[in-house]
Design a protein around this nucleic acid. Structure first.
Lengths: 247, 247
DNA sequence: TTTTTTCGTGCATATTCATGCAATATCGCG
DNA sequence: CGCGATATTGCATGAATATGCACGAAAAAA
């Protein structure tokens, strides 16, 4: 393994996982911890990451409510993202909803991926920058501060002439009998419209959303093609109609 | 084995494997490591790969252009941004172009600002998150990787029914006789269309852009209402029709 | 506090690199 | 064909780089 190659691998890993642990990396890459520490020191000197005791963290964990959420459950989301990433196949056309979980998905996509990503989230769109072969179509409209995505008539209209191979749809709550839910009516309508235009629907859920409830229904559980969830007990009713990827 | 043949084989191998290791190649091709190293040196000089200790790697696509630019001239841009921020007055409706300079502008806006910001840049839109009283309208369309903004027919159409108090327009070059210019025709058309819909046009320019040239004209110097520039000598011809803020 | 883990530095070793030089091969041209 | 010019290759040498280990300091954990 070339030194420079290892360093860029570290940076990729940092982007995907949100942190680096020197000890784990030394085992995984079969080099001494000293070597990893040296790498981290040099990358930090180049201003590419921030050294901390035990490993390293991204430089500017951008501020703001959304990113604060990103900071939470980082591991869980990164793990879900690694599971979900293969669903974005080469040549496919994917809708990606907003939210920190989907931001983690973007970070987990391989750099050489060749696909089309359609989103109404400026954060997701910005994350496509590192993917040179990905075409990104941004759906415009009025940005809703609560979730930082474009919604409203304009955004709805822009969906009109699109069709997706896969739609990654997020929500704030999920229950087998009530389906996928969220806290805002406008959001729910948009997510439902996006899901309807997709050949398959993928839903990534962190543990605390499962079994919870929220006022506005996005879609039935049966409409979900693939669920990506942590390895927690799930009702059997799900597995009948839905693929479930467990982390 | 001919030298050129070997070199092109090296490039093929680099594409396939994502890296080259000098020692392995010398064994495999039955030539000395010196020969391989010489090849790599020459290929690197031709800009076809990146030499590293032990071999070579593909040319670094790693640095996203925007990310890299954000890191550069940070101080200068922040200073321009402080000057330009008061142009975004309470209650006004502003168009903000993409680019790292405008990202700095967003960072310089006061948290209590109450205004409407319209942009075709996902990065700018994401930056409005920390401004709770700012309404953001995102212009959608196909994202152009080069500049990470939405362009094309969709984006153009979305401009149609909008009018701005101020438009912040960027460019890659400016000269008093040639006006504001950029490197892409599609970009130039969009910027011009945005500027036409604004009561006043503000242009923030870092020093290296002044007096430079680029192929596509956005607008005449006379169409610029306010220029925000570093404190460098400027032709008198400007000050006649344009406000100039010096840092 | 005590204990454990991680860090930084200095140092030793192994690998890789750049340079100069010589041997050989190839080409250009009369 | 002959002969010089140029290019290619391999080798030797000293420099630069990469890595691992040891040891005391610093930080985190108990």
């Amino acid at each position: 393994m070339l030194t420079e190659q290892r360093k860029s691998l570290l940076l990729d890993r940092l982007r995907a996982d949100g942190r680096l642990v020197a000890k784990d990396l030394s085992l995984e890459l079969a080099v001494s911890e000293d070597t990893i520490r040296r790498d981290l020191r040099e990358l930090a000197a180049d201003g590419l990451l921030k050294r901390v005791h035990g490993g390293a963290l991204p430089l500017a964990p951008e501020h703001g409510p959304l990113v604060r959420r990103v900071g939470l459950k980082t591991d869980e989301k990164a793990q879900l993202a690694r599971l979900a990433a293969p669903l974005v196949t080469s040549g496919s056309v994917c809708f990606v909803d907003g939210g920190s979980t989907h931001a983690a998905l973007l970070n987990a996509l391989p750099a050489e991926l060749d696909a089309t990503i359609i989103t109404h989230s400026p954060t997701i769109a910005a994350a496509t920058e590192r993917l040179p072969r990905v075409t990104c179509i941004l759906i415009g409209g009025t940005i809703y501060k609560q979730s930082m995505v474009a919604l409203g008539a304009k955004a709805h209209g822009a969906l009109g002439d699109l069709a997706f191979d896969v739609a990654f749809i997020g929500g704030t709550a999920f229950a087998p009998d009530r389906g996928l839910m969220t806290v805002d009516r406008e959001e729910a309508l948009f997510k439902a419209a996006a899901a309807e235009r997709a050949a398959s629907v993928a839903v990534m859920l962190t543990a605390e959303k499962i079994g919870a409830s929220a006022p506005f229904k996005i879609m039935d559980a049966a409409a979900i093609t693939t669920m990506i969830v942590p390895d927690v007990p799930l009702p059997d009713t799900l597995t009948a109609s839905t693929d479930v990827l467990l982390s």
